[in-house]
């Protein structure tokens, strides 16, 4: 039993569809529980700004390559996303927050991660329609935890598409079926 359980997450953030804004970029991060240790890879990142030419899909093809080891199953890696749009003046405005669990079964997974954004009062909604801006989350942890979500009033945003490949190692030695 001297081997540790390991997880490789290899994939990419392909792009996003369904956003009303055009020039989009995405900030992403991976959050894990205390039993998990990142052995190699970058835990968070930001894509380039992509302006779709045909159709409404923005492609980022942003690589994700992470190697975790763990002592327990609690706190499985979770991926949180923030989609922003950049306008012609270089101003950035929030387009959506997204969340998805990293799948726990080995293989490739095509994930569609829907997003939402805080709506704000009708004044703010009006202001957003004309000059942009709009409310954002004060603490980013509300994206990947559900505890205080009920306080929010949100609007549905677009969808972020991800391709993730999962490689698991030594989980069978601990009697885990995934």
């Amino acid at each position: 039993m001297e081997s540790m359980a390991e997880v490789h997450v290899i994939g990419q953030i392909v792009g996003a569809t369904g956003f009303s804004e055009s020039s989009l970029f995405c900030k992403w991060g991976v959050h894990t529980g205390a039993a998990w240790k990142l052995l190699s890879g970058i835990r968070e990142g930001q894509t380039q700004v992509d302006t779709p030419q045909i159709g409404d899909m923005a492609y980022w093809s942003h690589p994700i390559d992470l190697h975790f080891a763990t002592k327990g199953l609690q706190g499985w890696p979770r991926l949180h996303l923030q989609v922003w749009s950049q306008d012609s003046f270089g101003r950035c405005q929030l387009a959506g927050y997204g969340f998805c669990h990293v799948p726990s079964s080995p293989g490739t997974h095509q994930l569609d991660c829907p997003t939402w954004r805080p709506l704000g009062s009708w004044r703010e909604q009006l202001a957003r329609a004309f000059v942009g801006g709009g409310p954002q989350l004060l603490h980013g942890d509300a994206i990947y935890s559900g505890a205080d979500r009920y306080r929010l009033h949100t609007a549905a945003g677009g969808t972020v598409h991800l391709d993730l490949g999962l490689l698991l190692r030594h989980f069978d030695r601990y009697g885990v079926e995934c």
Binding site: M1, E2, M4, K37, L39, A69, T70, K71, G72
Partner: peptide, 13 residues
């Protein structure tokens, strides 16, 4: 080295 970072005492049922 990697094992020492993580520890091998996996949570069991």
């Amino acid at each position: 080295y990697l094992s020492s970072l993580v520890g091998t005492d996996f949570e069991m049922t």
